[in-house]
Amino acid sequence: MTEQVAIGIAGVGKIARDQHLPAIAGHSGFKLIAGASRNARIDGVNNYQNVEDMLAAEPLLQAVSLCAPPQVRFSQARAALEAGKHVMLEKPPGASVTEVTVLADLARQNQCTLFASWHSRHAPGVETARAWLAGKEIKAVNVLWKEDVRRWHPGQDWIWQPGGLGVFDPGINALSIITRILPHAFFLKSAELFVPANRHNPIAANLDFSDALGTPIRAEFDWRFGPQELWQIEVTTRDGLLHLAQGGKFLKIDGEMKDIGQEREYPSLYDRFFELISTGASDVDVSPLQHVADAMLLGGRHEVEKFED
Rank of each mutant, 00 (worst) to 15 (best):
L251T: 05
D43Q: 04
P183S: 03
I172G: 10
L297D: 12
M257H: 12
A95E: 09
S287W: 06
R224W: 08
N47K: 03
V141T: 05
A23S: 08
P202D: 01
V5E: 00
D43L: 02
I42M: 04
E265V: 15
E256A: 12
K189Y: 03
S96R: 04
N110W: 03
S37G: 06
T101V: 11
G35R: 02
R150C: 08
Q49V: 14
A212V: 02
G125A: 05
E52P: 04
R264H: 14
I9L: 10
Q4R: 13
W231D: 13
P69C: 06
R41M: 09
W231E: 14
D294F: 07
S278L: 09
A295M: 08
F273K: 02
R218M: 12
L276Y: 06
V149W: 11
P154E: 02
K249Y: 13
V87A: 06
F187K: 13
L103T: 05
G164N: 05
E127N: 01
P69Q: 04
L242K: 01
Q262M: 12
I33H: 04
G247C: 11
Q232S: 15
R199Q: 09
G11A: 08
V102E: 13
A197C: 04
R224L: 12
F209P: 00
V292Q: 06
D157K: 09
Q49E: 14
R78G: 06
G163S: 08
F187S: 15
A34P: 00
V304R: 01
D208V: 12
R151L: 15
E229G: 14
S96Y: 01
L55G: 04
R272K: 15
Y270P: 02
A10F: 08
L213I: 05
F274M: 15
L276F: 09
A10V: 12
E137V: 13
V286F: 07
K252W: 14
E90A: 10
V100S: 04
G125I: 00
G35E: 05
Q156W: 14
G164Y: 02
F186D: 00
E220C: 14
V87Q: 07
N39H: 15
K31Q: 13
D18Y: 12
M1N: 13
D148V: 08
I7F: 04
V304T: 06
N201H: 11
P227F: 08
T128L: 11
V167Q: 07
F209Y: 06
T236Y: 10
M257E: 15
D285Q: 10
D254I: 03
V72G: 11
F209L: 04
L193Q: 03
F307P: 01
S287V: 00
C112E: 02
G299K: 06
K306T: 14
G13Y: 00
L61Q: 01
Y48T: 08
S282C: 04
F115P: 08
P170N: 14
